[in-house]
Design a protein around this nucleic acid. Structure first.
Lengths: 157, 157
DNA sequence: GCAAAATAAATTGCACACAATTAAATTGTG
DNA sequence: CACAATTTAATTGTGTGCAATTTATTTTGC
């Protein structure tokens, strides 16, 4: 059996992309650590907060119900991840969880005032990072666009 | 205090990139699941195997010592992640772990014959996926290049 | 030579991810 | 209305990631 062959192949090409995504995603998380530590939250908790900040904004008031599953659709996460994460956020005073009166199966999530106060702090840190880094905004936008295009093709298969 | 402001800002822009990376990385992992399940390994175990497959190839024989820390540098992972992962792979007969005779602090890792036999299977699956998908190889290469460029700027800060 | 510093893994503890299952509530259908 | 099918979270179990600490070994400085 051939178990040792050359690496100038699909395998190596693809390895590089799948690993680049894996490495870049973790590097991004690492880059956020100073801010996250200062705010006392984790990276996925920050993503949850960003969705909740959007939902709490005036424009979005009459939008979708802020349920666990709506949050899950937005972040592509399931209740197995979100339920314990939201419980920790509730413990830390960042969100409130309550059952919908209309349908007791649904758990509604809302950001607290304390959770809202983290938004300007996060914004300030992010904008100062962008300023002090050598990262070009156009590059970021192109990468973002290409990533989503790739992600859509990936999930279409 | 201003806790509710517009989202046409650095925060929103950056959220999209950091979330795109997070989502794309997990989507890639999901896309690999059918193959990984068939091979009986996890995604990070697959990444480890790819490094070990490279190291086992003839060209690389006199390269760096296949230690846990060398593996960690390649994958940007530490022993806290790798040690238990490699133990599981050893349990499953995919790798061997032994202490270096030259330096007893160092744990050397080598792929077994069983571990090598997974390589052609992985290659076959990956190439068939690329063929059957609508993903353009040039797009993949560009995304890969842009990702590494971004990753380097990120880790430079 | 030998104690202190440095190095390499391993360990510990916590927080995700996610597959699979379970439990509770609601909806659809006869 | 009854009751099966569906929907929504929560739960369970396994495997990462990673910070922080510990253990074992080697190197360095004197």
């Amino acid at each position: 059996m051939v178990v040792c062959d050359d690496d100038s192949s699909d395998l190596a090409l693809n390895r590089q992309l799948c690993f680049a995504l894996y490495a870049a995603s973790r590097a991004m998380t690492r880059a956020y650590q100073p801010m996250l530590k200062a705010l006392g939250i984790t990276y996925p908790q920050y993503l949850v907060l960003m969705v909740l900040w959007e939902w709490a904004s005036a424009e979005a008031q009459q939008e979708e119900e802020p349920s666990v599953s709506a949050l899950g659709q937005r972040l592509m996460l399931d209740s197995g991840t979100l339920t314990p994460l939201l419980k920790r956020m509730e413990q830390n005073g960042l969100v409130l969880r309550r059952r919908s009166k209309r349908d007791e199966r649904i758990t509604l999530v809302e950001v607290t005032y304390e959770g809202l106060t983290l938004k300007p702090k996060a914004r300030e840190w992010v904008s100062s990072q962008l300023e002090s880094s050598s990262i070009n905004r156009n590059d970021v936008e192109r990468l973002h666009r290409d990533l989503w295009q790739f992600l859509h093709k990936l999930t279409d298969i």
